[in-house]
């Protein structure tokens, strides 16, 4: 059995990255050592960094909503930071309904082996919108779409912001919002009626319809909505 062609590379240390860490132990609840990138962000974007928290060893930087894209781009491009990997985009709504919704970005720097959490606050009563980071990380595509689908947060600059997990004609709102009841907004019978009444084949985007020429087969209401320039999924 010859395994010579198996692409095995042992270890990590030789490619110029910092030495691998070990499993964290006895992580303090608060007042742990912050990620050095938080200080760098303070120095670079003094007015846009609102707060830095360290909880359970993880650093959270609260940033100004309008400058998220600029900050993320700097973190991605700056040679001392190199946050090249976007782990996750999500949002948090608290049970206290007056508290702002938080949009959360989990960033990783693979060369420096750092983990950073960025947050921005969206106060209630204002439009829920943040800049999209799709320009910097292509992986943000579905993560932002899911966040929009579940929370109704608009990611401005996203190329194709439409519902991802729920279907296009879904009318009940945004499932992960705290004002959304666990069993859905409508009764079970109404939910069933709505599901049975819709045409699953009609779940094409406008882009696909140009190829399919199935536009004529859609319901009048859907055609009118698409004609008026409305994007699918809203």
């Amino acid at each position: 059995m010859s395994d010579t062609f198996l692409p095995v590379v042992a270890g990590h240390a030789e490619d110029g990255r910092v030495a691998p860490p070990s499993t964290p132990r006895n992580v303090p609840y608060q007042n742990g050592a912050p990620n050095p990138s938080a200080e760098a962000l303070r120095a670079q974007f003094a007015d846009a960094v609102q707060r830095v928290d360290v909880v359970w060893g993880e650093t959270t930087v609260f940033v100004d909503r309008a400058r998220v894209l600029e900050i993320v781009r700097w973190l991605h491009d700056d040679p001392t930071q190199q946050y090249d990997y976007l782990s996750d985009v999500t949002a948090v709504e608290y049970r206290d309904l007056d508290r702002p919704i938080e949009v959360v970005w989990h960033l990783r720097s693979l060369p420096h082996r750092r983990f950073l959490r960025l947050k921005t606050l969206l106060p209630k009563g204002q439009p829920l919108a943040v800049p999209s980071v799709w320009d910097v990380y292509k992986g943000a595509d579905w993560l932002e779409r899911e966040c929009y689908d579940m929370f109704g947060i608009r990611f401005e600059g996203h190329p194709d912001l439409r519902r991802l997990l729920m279907w296009e004609q879904y009318k009940e709102g945004y499932p992960l919002r705290k004002d959304f009841p666990l069993r859905g907004r409508f009764s079970r019978s109404e939910q069933l009626r709505q599901i049975l009444a819709q045409n699953p084949e009609a779940k094409y985007s406008m882009e696909e319809l140009t190829v399919l020429e199935a536009f004529d087969e859609l319901s009048l209401e859907q055609r009118n909505r698409l004609r008026s320039g409305e994007k699918v999924g809203e």
Binding site: G11, H12, T23
Partner: peptide, 13 residues
């Protein structure tokens, strides 16, 4: 690392 994985000897292909 988590669960003391750094103490195990294994390669990353």
């Amino acid at each position: 690392p988590y669960l003391d994985y750094e103490t195990y000897d294994f390669d990353v292909p």
